[in-house]
Amino acid sequence: MQNHAECGDTMAVAEIDLKGEVCPYTFVKTKLKLEELEIGDELVALYDHAPAVENVPRSLRNEGHKILGIKEIGDHLWQVRIQKV
């Protein structure tokens, strides 16, 4: 699978809203979404479940992906930026 650097086009940014989801679906749905993307693409995920904000980034790092940022953007609402590797 070619990534953006090799074929010179711009990186895509996708979004997924997982508000209301809890473990394990927070991880499973994030991973399924990542599988649709190209290497190098960024996924912006929204969670409102505190354990997910700790565990999903840790699990994705374990799988080799890069966590670009974790930000609380509202009351019990977090945005996690993930880069597919």
């Binding site: 473990c23 394990p24 991880f27 354990p51 997910a52 700790e54 565990n55 699990s59």
Partner: peptide
């Protein structure tokens, strides 16, 4: 470790 089913699977 307060983890998830990912840790169970691992």
């Amino acid at each position: 470790l307060f983890g998830s089913q990912y840790d169970h699977a691992s």
